[in-house]
Amino acid sequence: MTVGLLFDATRCIGCGACASACKEQNKLPGPVEEETSAYTWTTVKPVGDIYSRRLCMHCLVPTCASVCPVGALHKTPEGPVVYDAEKCMGCRYCMMACPFDVPKYQWDRAVPIIGKCIMCTSRVKKGEPTACAAACPAEATIFGSRADLIREAKDRIRKNPTGYVDHIYGLTEAGGTSVLMLSNQPFEKLGLKTNLPSEPPAMRTWQVLSNIPDFVAVWGVFLYGVHWITARREVVSTHTPQQKGPNTTDDTHTGSRS
């Protein structure tokens, strides 16, 4: 069973308790910033008359984990996508690749690491809700199993069809995410990407990468074949009876292979 979060923008009162709780739980320095950063893993921002919350979406097939050359990011069986700073060498491919622009970098440090929401993985492992969900006074962010959250979200839309956009953000985006969102405004107004494919982006690279062994075998044999043919042709041409005269010996390079 994987867990997740459901954020309902129509319930959020914009108090920012989630962002403060996150700072405290993860011992992040500085005040809560306007935008997410390596030191602010979640934010709440007013958008018209509602509030938009940003945090890592914890994809079911995380793009960041698939692109990390050293496997510093991975999805735990419980659901959180976590980061091992000890492995990271700072190529920042995860930042480039993340369809939700979540991972952030410590640009101001000489020994920098990535910063991103890890869904309070230590709390989740103990069966506790995330710090943000526990701190929310309006139950705008709730914690639970992803299946239960989807059921709950569908329920809310069914009971109040005029009060919601008929879509659960995160159900299929980039292959589905553990964090789900509901809104009464179009999701792009909340600053969320709505042009994401429903197939995980990682599949596109895997289509290419999984073919490498076959490709190496075929291309390698082909190249050797070409060499074999051209070398053989040279041997044959030097043994043809027409070329008897010493004047045709090539002057600079004799190759001397055998």
Partner: peptide, 15 residues
């Protein structure tokens, strides 16, 4: 680290 920690799903690893 690229030599020690492998992730064959990553293009960067191939690079």
């Amino acid at each position: 680290h690229a030599i020690v920690y492998w992730n064959p799903h990553s293009v960067m690893f191939e690079v």
